[in-house]
Design a protein around this nucleic acid. Structure first.
Lengths: 251, 251
DNA sequence: AGTCATCATGTACAATTTACACAATGATTT
DNA sequence: AAATCATTGTGTAAATTGTACATGATGACT
């Protein structure tokens, strides 16, 4: 079915896997809402998820780490492979080519590609968004306000969020979305943002403290408009114990 | 890193994705234990999971369905994509070539391949195991007795089982592992086999009946050595409702 | 000094999960 | 025909977990 199948090269002249790509859903948390990092393609108003190709010389997990590094500047990342997308018609190829022909070379474009999806949780405050060579903007979007994306990226995002929610329900996930020190309401709002529902603060606090994954500090967060909330940190040892098995946790 | 990159063909002369494969972990349940369908490579004593290549003309889900159909004869299948394996050194390539050089052509063999893993749950009694063109035996193995497998297939199997266990705990998965009519102890032993732990029969029965996914029939299973157990069936409507969303459920 | 939004906290009730033992069945043996 | 034996089927009480809910304390701002 594909018309052309040139041997693909990436830009370091590193050989890459043909017809295979990797897409990253990068979640951040700020101001009480979940955010996603999106890229705007050069000379267009079209947005997509960050992604890239997989080099012959790297593990796919490392490809995801590299792409994340390039887009966010972060080295310490929570990453999960969540699904591989391989429908024949993931999106309308002609439409994509017509939208992006000034950036991509239609001659070296495959009719079909399979994409491996990863999602990442990062500390919003430490990210320096960085466009790639196809794009001229890299920006956080509020999850609920994400526009129509190129390719099948809305579906990928939806599936990533679904996987994140599932994971959250049986594992503590927050580590990388919050700053090192955080308040209980911050953590609670993060859970609310991910799950998309309200949580009772008393029950939440009880549950989190009972699990032992956080340590209460003798410090409060000053400078807010109201009562200064107490600060907490994750108990890294306990946290890791609970995460035991399953997934890629780089720290 | 790969030395050769020929355009790969499969045997219907259908073009396939290069450097990409698909592996299936096919679970069955019989005689109180979980079983896995394995293939023995021609002229060797080496076993592997069933697998294959992905055609340019099919969705990856359909590739998995096709492979399953070819190995088991079954059309109605419960399938889940659970992970994509993409380490550089998933296994020792030279070792594989030396073991299988009489079956595979080392010239058309990639130095590296990425494999998409699916697991399937099938009704043991209805499967007709069927080797492929590289193998001369297709057989059920008891999960605990699975030998050392070719490639990284022991790891893939381990991850599949892990995913199945996770899924079992939030979805009623049994439908496809049991015959149409089954007894409560059979169902319980299936859960025990998957989870690898004992379950209290009174609590199990209570839970399953309360969930409403099974219907008690006015029939017992005769011919056993002891008291004839009652038969049950799944309530398909209820079952589907509970499965709502998430995953590939082919029926 | 008063106002106000936010933070911190405990108890009672409901729901769920866990632990646990014995009588009934029906094929097999004596 | 009676006894044996492995297996099936069933209920209750205790413990645990989850849920619902309201008020006083704080600290910046006016």
């Amino acid at each position: 079915m594909p018309k052309k199948r040139p041997s693909n090269k990436d830009f370091d002249n590193e050989e890459v896997f043909p017809q295979l790509s990797l897409d990253c859903v990068i979640f951040g948390f700020n101001d009480g809402t979940l955010k996603v990092l999106l890229l705007k393609w050069k000379g267009t108003e079209y947005w997509s998820l960050p992604g890239g190709l997989i080099r012959q010389s790297e593990d796919i997990d490392n490809a995801a780490i590299r792409i994340l590094q390039e887009r966010t500047g972060l080295g310490q990342i929570f990453l999960r492979q969540f699904h591989t997308f391989g429908k024949i018609e993931r999106y309308d190829n002609q439409k994509i080519i017509s939208k992006l022909s000034h950036v991509i070379d239609p001659e070296s474009w495959y009719d079909r590609a399979i994409s491996i999806g990863y999602y990442a949780l990062v500390d919003y405050a430490e990210v320096f968004p960085n466009p790639d060579q196809f794009t001229d903007e890299c920006q956080w979007w509020i999850l609920e306000e994400v526009p129509e994306l190129l390719f099948d990226h809305n579906e990928i995002l939806k599936k990533a969020l679904h996987s994140l929610r599932l994971e959250l329900s049986y594992q503590p996930v927050g580590y990388n979305l919050l700053s090192e020190k955080f308040t209980m309401p911050e953590m609670m709002r993060m859970y609310e943002a991910i799950l998309g529902s309200k949580i009772d603060p008393r029950n939440f606090q009880k549950k989190i403290l009972n699990s032992g994954i956080v340590i209460k500090l003798n410090e409060v967060k000053k400078g807010l408009a109201h009562k200064s909330p107490n600060l907490y940190m994750f108990d890294k040892v306990k946290y890791q114990q609970i995460l035991e098995g399953g997934g890629l946790f780089i720290i």
